[in-house]
Design a binder for these strands. Structure first.
Lengths: 142, 142
DNA sequence: ATGCGTGCAAACGATTTGCAGAGAA
DNA sequence: TTCTCTGCAAATCGTTTGCACGCAT
């Protein structure tokens, strides 16, 4: 019988992820937890993150070098506008979902899911003079 | 002085990728090359694939567990309709690019690039009774 | 001959997992 | 006590890189 147990680190990870304004890597979230005194094992961070994604409480988007996570309110389908530098993201509404089904049908495809991620720079990072092709902050050294 | 040298394995990788109908992982492409007698080192496959992506002759999309490649004709911006099982993909035209810029501007974002990938099952795989949530063929064992 | 490209194996970085101990129920 | 969850370290896995040799130029 699956028994769900409530623990301090579980709460810590959930809270930390919820406090983030944008997508964040598991490693960086782990780092942030350490900084805030709440020392949680990296493995646990990964385990919790995966659990959240499985239960639909978080989104994970694969990027070159790993994946980024973010807590998501809308259980519904939605898209993101992501800042390539700081990871800040806002949820945006879908454009023409029907267009997708139409195109898919034309090619005999059965649509299962689709991903639309818009990358760019948020106002802050843009003003800070960050170059569009810089390595994302989330995967930068030190 | 950068000197571009033509080699057998370079051609082999390019040709093999071109013959693929959809996205394929580096490992799988390497396997396919071996099967066809053209033995090319895995490292070389990666090196060539990256070179192709850099020069814009191929597309790479990050997926959980790695990345998938595909030769692309259109140097222009375009999107894909991808079969989650066999990796087959067709290039589709963008829907409302202007919609994206509008939304981005509303949030103060500077758009750099965007990704739209539609996943589902192609007619063949659908008829074969493949389940939507199966692990992609490209990353399945053996 | 010159030096780019390749193969191999070691190195890497992100993520996962085995296992013994810690703590929630 | 019971059994899940955690932490640590070792193990995986995709991908990159160092180095010595082969081959295109």
């Amino acid at each position: 019988m699956r028994e769900e147990r409530r623990t301090a680190q579980k709460d810590a990870v959930r809270r930390a992820l919820g406090e983030e304004s944008g997508f964040i890597s598991a490693q960086q979230l782990h780092q942030r937890l350490s900084d805030n005194g709440a020392s949680v094992g990296l493995a646990t961070v990964y385990r919790q993150l995966n659990a959240l994604v499985d239960s639909g409480l978080a989104d994970a988007i694969p990027v070159s070098g790993g994946q980024l996570f973010r807590a998501c309110e809308q259980r519904e389908h939605h898209h993101h506008l992501v800042c390539e530098n700081c990871g800040r993201a806002v949820e945006i509404d879908p454009p023409s979902e029907k267009w997708i089904r139409t195109v898919a049908k034309d090619h005999g495809f059965t649509v299962n899911r689709h991903v639309l991620e818009v990358f760019g720079l948020c106002a802050d990072c843009h003003n800070a003079g960050v170059e569009p092709n810089d390595r994302p902050e989330a995967f930068r050294d030190s």
